[in-house]
Amino acid sequence: MTTLWLAQDADADRLLAEDPFALILGMLLDQQQPLEKAFKGPYLLAQRLEVSRLDPAEIAAYDPERFAAIYATPPAIHRFPGSMAERSQKLAQAIVDDYDGDTAALWTGAKDGKDLLKRLGDLPGFGKMKAQIFTALLGKQFDVRPEGWREAAGAYGEEGSLRSVADIVDAPSLTKVREFKKQMKAEAKGAKG
């Protein structure tokens, strides 16, 4: 089993390693909040639903108002609980519709890296960058390596790049990834100014 260091909570990271939907949901939640909080979100959701694994069909079918309330219960699963609860249900529905509820089929059925990237990019809430980062995460930490996966992941697939969650395996790598993100934000801000 893969040992992760994303939520920085042993139980939450174990769920991410064992439950493909929890992992992809953590990636979805990784925006506009610290990555540890994002990747702990699936564990909080599982606790609140009183389940040991997250079932995309159950999440997709959940009453949207009640689901949003679960996201908003302190500590909130996301800083924008309403919109992210809705996006999470759309992600779950896409997994049900396109992969019969089997999240791992999304990557186990990919013909190659380009196909994997397309499948991920077609998911609600996944743009090109998020799809590339998740492709890199699968390749680097889960040994999901269809032909051409590094190329599909772009710079995130580079060995030792330390630029995304795909590269976080301990405290030093987390620090390096944070430094890289800070530098990228500063450069983007400088380009606008």
Results as ranks from 00 to 15, higher is better:
168 I>F: 03
175 T>A: 14
152 A>H: 08
158 E>N: 14
150 R>V: 12
170 D>L: 02
35 L>F: 15
120 L>R: 07
65 E>C: 00
17 A>R: 05
193 G>P: 03
82 G>V: 08
74 P>N: 09
103 T>S: 14
29 L>K: 01
173 S>V: 00
126 F>N: 04
27 M>V: 00
180 F>H: 13
186 A>M: 11
191 A>C: 01
97 D>S: 14
132 Q>G: 04
126 F>P: 06
21 F>P: 07
140 K>M: 04
141 Q>Y: 02
121 G>H: 03
190 G>F: 07
41 G>A: 05
99 Y>C: 10
86 E>N: 06
191 A>S: 04
43 Y>Q: 11
166 A>Q: 10
31 Q>K: 09
15 L>W: 12
161 S>V: 05
79 R>T: 07
95 I>T: 06
133 I>E: 08
8 Q>C: 06
9 D>N: 15
116 L>A: 06
14 R>S: 13
67 F>C: 04
133 I>S: 06
109 G>W: 01
167 D>M: 12
128 K>Q: 14
115 D>N: 04
41 G>I: 01
84 M>W: 05
160 G>R: 06
9 D>C: 12
176 K>I: 01
76 A>D: 01
117 L>G: 04
136 A>R: 14
156 Y>D: 00
163 R>H: 05
161 S>K: 13
25 L>A: 13
132 Q>D: 04
3 T>D: 15
177 V>Y: 09
101 G>T: 04
22 A>K: 11
142 F>W: 00
47 Q>N: 11
33 Q>P: 00
160 G>Y: 00
86 E>V: 08
159 E>D: 11
55 D>V: 02
107 W>V: 03
10 A>T: 15
32 Q>C: 02
37 K>N: 12
139 G>N: 07
16 L>T: 09
